[in-house]
Design a protein around this nucleic acid. Structure first.
Lengths: 357, 357
DNA sequence: CGTTGTTGTGCAATCGATTGCACAGAGTTT
DNA sequence: AAACTCTGTGCAATCGATTGCACAACAACG
């Protein structure tokens, strides 16, 4: 015993174990376990509960989540997979998810999945190996193999920001079609008729849905939706490339609605290079309203998405799913909002406007 | 046995256990364990190793990190505590940390610690309960109680971005004094003499060090460093408040060096409200070079910090510390760089310049 | 041929907590 | 007084993998 005392003394670091607390309180460790668990404390005599709690407090006891998890099969861990943490759009989503999880006693295991599907699968396997109780995927593609893997493994999963066409899991997304409609309607109301679109990658729901939204809204306005250029990724550079292509092919455009703020910034770059003014020569609408985008020059008119809310809802849906794994998938569509800033204005009537009928 | 088979059949989801793999390969589970561990596979006959690996592969076996960790006391988890994940400065740091950890077989348990010290302590306790093998703190204050707690608990910790005056743990920071010197020297070179400073909170190392840097550089240039206003937090709003105060008290300033890009943006707001032009009436230098800051109007001249590198180094230091816990703390100071954009210019000689000698 | 080494496997304890079941003792009913 | 409930605790198995130690088989040696 003395030896034991000494050892514990030496390694002050080692946290007290349940057994030790139980010994200190003079009860069996099972009793201590129950006394320390609010859900089961009623099974134990009031005085004993207090004695155990006092001992635990005094010894600085902390339940070992690992050990407990082994037995209960509850790790209190949630995996979160994002394509790129450095992408500002995900910052508020992640932040909100983490907050909700923490409020519910969970911790977030966050992983970057910049690489391809194989890397994503590896990451998910890692998460599963850590026995996460659920996974939030912000990386979903059409027929996502990663989601398939989660489903196979029986790990509850929810999708956020990007969706699949067929809902195999609960999902929280923005109304991408509606958002694009807001953008187009705004431009049409300003008097634009020649409106182009810089679309996101086809395999991402945001890319294809927003493009659909563009085409629908244009059709409803009786306008031609032919001026579309597809960016290869949601980056400034890809946006610039797509913008150059679009402007080359359709020099008569007076406005462009883009699928993403970064693409809009790429367009800004290209405009600057061509010495075209925004909104003087071309009006631009972005999508997402990412942080700081209100400070660019000119301040970008864009579609605001409540990313924080999306993250929060995704986390809540996941937690619900964990307690009721067999409920039907829920699709939550968040309404976006148009935020008018300085990048849109009525079209400038060019001198060479005789070619307009 | 058949019952067991059936159960497993029903719940397809349950991953195979080591025991089952061992049974399938016709060996003891300890043998299977060794065969599956590259470090110990040499102890086992070549043919057996192959048989076990084949069985494992075929049954989709994944080592249960929780169970293994219980025995080995290695959770393969690293805690990361940031003040605010939504703050763009931390995005690249987090991203880099996660990448390095993943490369080394670790996962990142990331937690937001927006609240006060008590919340931070709670979070650290949570992390410890999850038996993290190390912690990265991006929240350090002077005499940080959180760090104290980590040290007590014997959990290796490293500080990133913010430091303590006395180095109790390895730290990776930017050369805050040097960075500020770059800013001041740049302004002086442009011809500015009346230079102000918007400082960050005093209890953060970045706040006090950058202020020191400002004062030193001004002294070296033989200028008066009296025009300083302290912001209550690193936010745009706090920056604007401090800016208003500074401009009120020192209407003759021709340039301001701020301790942070967001503070600079706050200053932009205040300038706009006062109908003052930047850089026409006032030159502004930021600090950090956060994402997108090059797109604001005017593009902000700022001090670039290699946040990704900082994150990477912090993660590497932590991993080293885990294998050699008793090595002396290392302080890694990263060199920042001046990035000249559009917010700085030579001072405008005002008409009322007769009061200059 | 007996002894000593090597090599490859199996056995069983262990990590720390949870939980179904057994059981002792007090209180209630017939 | 026997039979029966409750209540509060203890016992021991369990979660899944790791590892020190024992031991068998076989080779090499004197």
């Amino acid at each position: 015993m003395t030896t034991n005392e000494l050892t514990r003394q030496e390694l002050t670091r080692q946290p007290a174990t349940l057994q030790e607390v139980a010994d200190a309180a003079g009860v069996h460790r099972s009793t201590a376990s129950r006394a320390l668990n609010p859900e089961k404390a009623h099974l134990i005599g009031q005085d004993v509960v207090e004695r155990v709690q006092a001992a635990a407090l005094q010894m600085g006891y902390r339940r070992d989540v690992l050990a407990a998890g082994l037995r209960t099969r509850r790790s209190r861990l949630i995996g979160v997979v994002v394509p790129d943490m450095a992408n500002l759009v995900f910052a508020p989503i992640l932040s909100a998810i983490e907050t909700v999880l923490a409020e519910n006693g969970y911790s977030a295991l966050i992983a970057n999945a910049g690489g391809g599907v194989d890397q994503q699968i590896r990451i998910v396997e890692q998460l599963i190996a850590h026995r996460v109780e659920g996974i939030v995927l912000a990386t979903a593609q059409q027929d996502d193999p990663v989601l398939t893997r989660c489903l196979e493994a029986g790990v509850p999963a929810v999708l956020v920001n990007r969706a699949e066409t067929i809902a195999r899991a609960s999902t929280v997304i923005s109304d991408d079609i509606g958002g694009m409609r807001l953008a187009v309607e705004h431009l049409v109301a300003l008097g634009h008729r020649k409106i182009g679109h810089i679309a996101g990658p086809r395999h991402l729901s945001t890319g294809s849905l927003r493009r659909q939204g563009f085409e629908q809204a244009m059709a409803e306005a009786g306008l031609d939706a032919g001026a579309v250029s597809v960016a290869s990724a949601y980056t400034r550079d890809a946006g610039r490339v797509a913008a150059a292509d679009l402007l080359d092919r359709h020099p008569d455009l007076t406005a462009v609605a883009t699928a993403n703020d970064l693409l809009a910034l790429g367009l800004y770059l290209e405009l600057r290079a061509r010495r075209l003014a925004c909104p003087g020569d071309l009006s631009v609408v972005g999508h997402n309203d990412m942080p700081l985008i209100d400070m660019v020059d000119p301040p970008l008119t864009t579609i605001h998405i409540h990313h924080g809310d999306m993250g929060r809802q995704a986390a809540e849906l996941l937690l619900k799913r964990i307690v009721a794994p067999d409920a039907a998938p829920v699709i939550r569509v968040m309404a976006p909002e148009l935020v008018v800033r300085g990048s849109t204005a009525p079209p400038f009537r060019r001198v060479v406007s005789k070619d307009e009928i």
